[in-house]
Design a protein around this nucleic acid. Structure first.
Length: 875
RNA sequence: GCCCAGUUGGCGCAGUGGUAGCGCGUUCCCUUGACAUGGGAAAGGUCAUAGGUUCAAAUCCUAUACUGGGCACCA
């Protein structure tokens, strides 16, 4: 016998152990097209957060769903070494221990990183297990393990040989804090307040000179020109002359360039090719030299004269102060500008001229564009397609070298006087390897290939590649998704996955981004501890509308927990009503005799079928929220609240075919629903399935081994759904009357039915209505409405409930008057619709029939309410 | 600046042309043999605004406002 409330902990532990022991998640193969997902490998930076819980629950739900539909499935687990992010974590640890990274040395540092990675992987993979992820654990991969290192090397070498990788001195995004270059998409923009400074540059040899406007005065020591717009008559007289940089008095030419906007600032732009992208381009056009005013350490260089050695920030303050005191600062305006910051540490990016490795993008992007335009690759929801496409079209070369230690070391060796060589090992004495490592996204880009053993032509690669779907957040659409497409097409000629499912971010209750500094982060483990894994999963899935962010409220996990418990208890109820002796009797829906079905039976079977179809359809379409909603509403509002209550009539009665029919439907519908819920809440459903399966003659050990319940019969029954709907309305009307007139439950009441449906209600469905509305007697009303009675009006039937001495007639009149207002409103709406339809051409006849019956029903309801009110005025 | 989403009861969200729904919360009643993690009842929204298309608009179109996001930026 099941416990009274569901206790997740022991069930989850037992199920995890059983699944693991049975190697249930081992990838399956078969003749059908496999459904394959590679996990977006979490960085080994710490524990999983709620976003990971969302991402992985989605994947697990899709994988389980496809497997239950009968497809071979494969879901690959793994982790990412995470480059800068992970190195930052380690650096923080070292700082706390007061250890200097440089003093520690590269080898010792990497050893510590390996140890950290081992621990972290264990944590992350353990958390994925706990979340119930049906990952094929034997295929665990890491972006820096041996197999993946081989893939990285071969990819690098191949690109090198094709001439798609080059080394060159370019202006790159430099993070001063991380001490490394970043790619363009690793840079974020933040609006910050600052100043716009108007600085006077004197004319060489005397004269007025120019006034430039800049937000970065400290870079002036790197200026190599002043540019004005060719159309700007204010400054044309200066073009060709030279001006002097303040303090260092280096002379620089005044040039004309169309890039300059003469309406901005003073119309004079100082050109610093070594520290600004636009200036770099002007420099290229005019053959200007690039002089570095700021070094990789973020400090002003020798070029800054007396200011050398100051940090960027201090240098700026000092320069401004000195300009002011020397009268060269002509004006200072407040100015908002979008500064670039490092996506990992948030510090301000310094555009810096440096020697880096780049991957040419144009040729790689072309096949990716083609795949998109020809429909080989689709993005869900589709509104991300355009940004993705635009990015592919406009991308610049990808800077792949990083000046950190943690990562795949660039496999290029140098020797004086020799051409550099690409090699894993040292080519011989005297060769030194490039000290830099590759961008972590380089290995991530190869992930769908490398997890299947690429570059080797493995059987796995042949069978599982291309994979089916990639599930990820929109924040790494360019960083990762696009690059996988490019690499997959470049190396295997096929898209790595034909669909990308883009989900949103989990935010806090108020819609704010979760962050440790604000302190609004939700720990998924805590939620699992408190409410159970299934509750967390269901809560996330119920809110996971494609591409939309989730405002996460702990209340929703509580609600999901309650739903899990509802499922648990409905199963408990059904089991209680199945005689132990019937284990093996095989209750089967297929065997039911249609002639013996009651209205409620036909109704619930019809609803059951429609619900399962809806849930599957939406899981196919990657819309788990709709599936979750449908199953939730069916199980709770229809199966439990109505069907179980009605079945109680037969279950408490004598043994016989009617009772057996009720048992068959209860257990059959429940088993099917449990299986349908399995992708969303694997633990509790597995447990319940274990308890239910003996009664339906199933011996499959786990739900995943069996598959969804397949319908051998078509239960669809619109007539039963409609009739049941009327009956439910009738029941609700009496319940409402009871509640509003405060008729105590203990009071035995009688109801008299009149109206067109009265005969049916009293004849065929007497027991249903009596049971659910708690009536002592339900009879047809003969003669006039009894005095001293309350009235409940439903579609097709009116009930009189004699309540001598109990009714407050004023209250009753108020109640009915309110109903009347609503009924009249309905008539208005129905009338408008009917008039519209009859006046309009080309309206299908059945639409008019439907509108007519709706109108008639509303009119009838209103008429009966009016009658009653009239009678009530003289009780 | 360009582009994309969103705007529906207190909160969070469904709802792609035909009488506005759900969950949570709120109010009242109820411990009746599955479940108080429960049951019943009720209150609460002219679906951001202004136009338009249509017999009929939360739903389609246009504009505006606000919010969020993507991209590109004036140094």
């Amino acid at each position: 016998m099941l416990e009274k409330t569901y206790d997740p902990k022991p069930v989850e532990e037992a199920r995890l152990a059983a699944w693991e022991a049975a190697k249930l998640y081992k990838a399956t193969a078969g003749t059908a097209v496999p459904f394959t997902i590679v996990i977006p490998p979490p960085n080994v930076t710490g524990a999983l957060h709620i976003g990971h819980a969302l991402n992985n629950t989605l994947q697990d739900a899709f994988i389980r769903h496809q497997r239950l539909r009968g497809r071979p499935t494969c879901w690959i687990p793994g982790t990412d070494h995470g480059g800068i992010a992970t190195q930052n974590v380690m650096e923080k640890q070292l700082k706390a221990e007061k250890v200097d990274r440089q003093a520690l040395g590269r080898a010792a540092f990497l050893e510590r990183m390996q140890a950290w990675t081992r621990d972290c992987k264990k944590t992350i993979l353990g958390q994925l297990r706990r979340l119930g992820c049906s990952l094929d654990w034997e295929r665990e991969a890491f972006t820096m393990d041996e197999a993946r290192a081989k893939a990285v090397f071969v990819a690098f070498k191949t690109l090198w040989e094709k001439g798609l990788i080059y080394r060159g001195e370019r202006l790159v995004n430099w993070c001063v804090r991380c001490g490394t270059a970043l790619s363009d998409i690793e840079v974020e923009r933040e609006e910050r307040k600052g100043g716009l400074y108007h600085i006077h540059y004197k004319l060489e040899g005397g004269g007025e000179g120019a006034v430039v406007a800049t937000t970065r005065p400290e870079t002036m020591f790197g200026d190599t020109a002043v540019a004005v717009s060719p159309k700007d008559s204010r400054w044309t007289h200066l073009v060709g002359k030279k001006v002097l940089i303040p303090f260092i008095s280096r002379a620089i030419p005044v040039i004309a360039d169309a890039h300059v906007d003469f309406e901005f600032g003073t119309g004079c732009l100082k050109v610093t090719p070594a520290h600004d992208q636009a200036d770099w381009e002007i420099g290229q056009r005019h053959g200007l030299p690039a002089i570095k005013a700021i070094g990789p350490d973020g400090k002003l260089t020798e070029a800054a004269g007396l200011y050398a050695g100051l940090s960027r920030e201090k240098g700026r303050d000092q320069v401004i102060a000195d300009l002011e005191s020397t009268g060269l600062l002509r004006k200072k305006e407040d100015h908002k500008s979008a500064v670039q910051v490092c996506y990992r540490c948030g510090s301000v990016i310094e555009p810096l001229l440096s020697l880096q490795w780049f991957v040419k993008q144009i040729e790689l992007a072309k096949p990716a564009l083609k795949a998109l335009d020809e429909g080989q690759f689709k993005i869900y929801p589709s509104n991300w397609t355009k940004p993705y496409r635009d990015w592919l079209v406009n991308m610049r070369d990808w800077c792949v070298s990083r000046q950190i230690w943690w990562g795949h070391r660039i496999p290029v060796w140098y020797k004086d006087g020799a051409e550099p060589r690409v090699s894993l090992e040292s080519p011989g004495p005297g060769w030194t390897q490039d000290p830099d490592v590759l961008d972590t996204w380089f290995s991530s880009a190869l992930w769908p290939l490398s997890v299947f053993g690429w570059p080797d032509k493995t059987a796995d690669l042949a069978y599982y590649y291309p994979t089916s779907t990639l599930v990820t957040g929109y924040e790494i659409l360019y960083l990762w998704v696009a690059r996988m497409q490019m690499m997959g097409l470049a190396f295997e000629g096929k898209v790595p996955f034909s669909e990308a499912v883009i989900h949103g971010i989990v935010r806090d209750r108020g819609g704010k981004k979760m962050s440790k500094s604000i302190g609004n982060v939700i720990d998924p483990l805590l939620m699992m501890d408190k409410y159970g894994t299934d509750a967390l999963r269901f809560s996330l899935m119920a809110q996971a509308h494609p591409g939309r962010d989730i405002a996460f409220d702990e209340q929703s996990v509580l609600a999901a927990r309650n739903f899990v418990n509802k499922l648990w208890n409905s199963t408990r109820f059904v089991l209680m009503n199945l005689p132990e002796s019937s284990k093996g009797v095989r209750y089967q829906l297929e065997a039911l005799s249609s002639a013996r079905l009651e209205l409620a039976d036909a109704w619930i079977l019809s609803r059951y079928q429609a619900t399962l179809a809806k849930a599957q359809l939406h899981l196919d379409a990657y819309e788990p929220a709709v599936a979750a909603e449908a199953l939730y509403a069916f199980l709770w509002d229809e199966f439990c609240d109505w069907y179980i209550e009605l079945a109680k009539g037969r279950l408490t009665g004598a043994e016989g075919v009617e009772k057996e029919a009720a048992r068959t439907i209860l257990v059959g519908v429940l088993v099917g629903t449990v299986k349908a819920l399995h992708p969303l809440m694997p633990f509790v459903t597995e447990e319940l399935y274990g308890a239910l399966k003996p009664f339906v003659g199933e011996t499959t050990e786990f739900i995943l081994n069996g598959g969804y319940q397949t319908a051998a019969r078509d239960w669809s029954n619109p007539a039963a759904e409609k009739e049941m709907g009327l009956l439910m309305g009738a029941v609700t009307s009496i319940r409402s009357l009871r509640a509003q007139l405060n008729v105590p439950l203990g009071l035995k009441i009688k109801a008299l039915a009149s109206g067109p449906l009265a005969a049916d209600v009293v004849g065929k469905h007497n027991s249903y209505v009596s049971l659910l509305a708690r009536l002592e007697i339900l009879q047809a009303s003969v003669g006039p409405r009894p005095a001293q009675s309350a009235t409940a009006v439903a579609d097709g039937v009116t009930f009189y409930v004699p309540l001598a001495g109990l009714i407050d007639f004023t209250k009753e009149r108020e109640r009915l008057a309110k109903d009347l207002v609503k009924a009249e409103g309905d008539i208005g709406k129905c009338e408008a619709k009917l008039n519209n339809l009859t006046a309009a051409p080309n309206v299908p006849a059945e639409k008019i029939v439907e509108a007519k019956s709706q109108h008639e029903a509303a009119v009838a309801r209103s008429a009966r309410l009016k009658e009653t009110l009239a009678v009530l005025s003289w009780p």
